[in-house]
Computed example of a mutant assay.
Amino acid sequence: MMKCDLDNVVISFEDIYKGLPKRLDELISAPKYEIKSLTEGTIKKVFGEDSLPIEGVFLITNNTNNKMLYVGRSRNLATRIGVDLRATSREQATISYKLTTLKDDYPDLETIRDAREYMYKHYSVQMIKVPDENERAIFQIYAAMKLGTINVFNSFRET
């Protein structure tokens, strides 16, 4: 049995497992927000919360072809989305950097800055609250596998 420290509720793996399809439906039916419009304040409004952090899972989609690209998770959605999607250094801008390496699909994206601008124009984010860290981890892998994002942008390789 796993214990969620936030609510002192015991959540078993079996309960998390049973809830995965419902969580996936919740994520893919969540409202889409343009990446360029997502700020800490916007994310607080989306969830009706004044305080941070907001723990959850997010899905990035290319609006041009409606292709789901990446499933992420964080203890603080505002920080994670802000860092990954606004950063220009290779160490922080993981998704932007990955776009620059996919020359067959994105031949015009030469720099992380180019990739970030492309993301601002073409990508959206959907988010749901998932307070339990174990559920977030299990759900991220489940959603990535079900949505087919695991081969390019999501990678769970160990180093």
Rank of each mutant, 00 (worst) to 15 (best):
R113V: 09
G41Y: 09
P31M: 00
A137H: 07
Y142S: 06
D104V: 08
A78V: 04
D50T: 05
V125Q: 07
Q92K: 15
Y120L: 00
Y33R: 03
L52G: 09
N65A: 01
T42N: 02
L102V: 03
P107E: 03
Y33H: 08
G72W: 13
K98H: 04
H122V: 07
L77C: 03
F47K: 13
N134I: 00
S37V: 00
E26I: 02
N76A: 03
I35D: 04
I141L: 08
L38V: 11
G41N: 07
S124R: 11
I60H: 07
R116H: 00
G82L: 05
Q126H: 14
P53Q: 06
E26A: 03
K103V: 14
I54C: 01
N154H: 10
N66R: 08
R157K: 15
T88P: 02
L27S: 05
Y97S: 07
L77I: 00
E49H: 01
I11F: 10
T94I: 13
I112D: 02
V10W: 11
T101D: 05
I138L: 08
E110K: 12
T94Y: 02
T149N: 12
A78L: 03
I81S: 01
R80V: 05
A137M: 14
V152P: 08
E158Y: 15
I95H: 13
V83E: 02
F139T: 06
M145A: 12
G41H: 11
N8D: 08
Y120K: 09
G19W: 12
Q92V: 01
T79S: 15
R157T: 03
E49Q: 03
V46D: 06
K45V: 11
T94K: 06
S51P: 12
F139Y: 10
A137I: 05
E14P: 08
P53G: 04
L59K: 10
M119N: 07
G72H: 00
E14H: 14
I95K: 03
L99G: 09
M119W: 04
E14S: 13
R90T: 06
N154Y: 06
M127H: 08
D108W: 06
I54Y: 04
I95T: 10
A115W: 06
D25V: 00
D15V: 02
K121Q: 10
E91T: 13
S51R: 11
R90V: 02
A115D: 04
R86G: 14
V71R: 03
R113F: 11
D15R: 15
P131C: 09
K3R: 10
S37D: 14
L147C: 05
T149L: 15
I35A: 05
T64P: 01
D5W: 09
N63F: 09
C4M: 12
E26T: 02
T61W: 01
Y70A: 12
I16F: 12
M1W: 11
F139K: 12
T79A: 14
R75H: 13
D84V: 07
K103I: 10
V125M: 04
E158M: 15
D15Q: 06
P53V: 10
F139D: 08
V9K: 15
N151V: 14
T159Q: 15
T94S: 11
R86W: 01
L38I: 07
N134K: 02
R86D: 02
V9E: 12
T79I: 06
